[in-house]
Design a protein around this nucleic acid. Sequence first.
DNA 1: ACCCAGGAAGCTC
DNA 2: GAGCTTCATGGG
Length: 275
Amino acid sequence: MPTITAKNFSLKATLESGQIFRWEQQGEWHYIVTGKNIIRIRQDEERISYQCSSDDFDVQKFLGLKDSSYEKTLAEISRHRQLKSAAAKYKGLRIMQQEPWECTASFICSSFSNIKRITKNLNAIASKFGKQIKLEGYASYAFPTAAEIAANPAKLKGCGLGYREKYLAETAQKISSGWSYSRIRRKSYEQAKKQLMKLPGVGEKVADCIMLFSLGFTEAFPVDTWIGKAMKQEHAECRAMSAKKTAEYGRKLFGKNAGYAQQFIYHYARSCGGK
DNA sequence: ACCCAGGAAGCTC
DNA sequence: GAGCTTCATGGG
């Protein structure tokens, strides 16, 4: 089993900050399900031990551990008064690098919902479409590809998606017929976002999440209800702003660090009630 | 019963 | 383009 030493990494803060939904803790171990993989992982201070059901999956990249400028980013965002407490308290919170399709599907399900329900929805989708996968006695289901959902969208019934069901079905169809995330990855922030927002169920905020969590756009600043409230509280200029304007404000304020800033603000606001 | 949830789409103006 | 309404569902 691989054991590594990781500085400036908090598995707990990273997992609990709402980037990814299919994971759970059992004692000291955390089980993360992503794509067709299960990762079993624990952290004891700087010592990380993990194993993965596939040996060709780059766990460290997935966890955001290969971001060589993390310390610099943390230092820069810590200079903002708004982020001092959050950056100290959740030092080691990383932006993970998810697979784009699963990330897209996850955040289509996230709109006007809550994390517990999103997790339930995604697990339901996986168990209906996906193959069973196992690791060390832990069993789960692989997340289906876009093509697998597009081939039988009626199976989404009963997954509890509500009105998001048709968005996911339509987007699965589009993604499986000629869409290329690697092409989007090479575009500018504006062009990539514009392209993603053509997908049903993908608006400003979901597009920003997909770009930040799976396509490497660290300047994305997703604004949900929590970020909206936190920004209004901290910046008087934001009080009368729409979510779209607040996102622009955040991108200008934090630049390339906007994604990290957003993730710390989000986690802090949700966990500490803004205190 | 009432309110909210990691919002988006479809209206109107 | 900016504001308002509607959209299923589960949990507090």
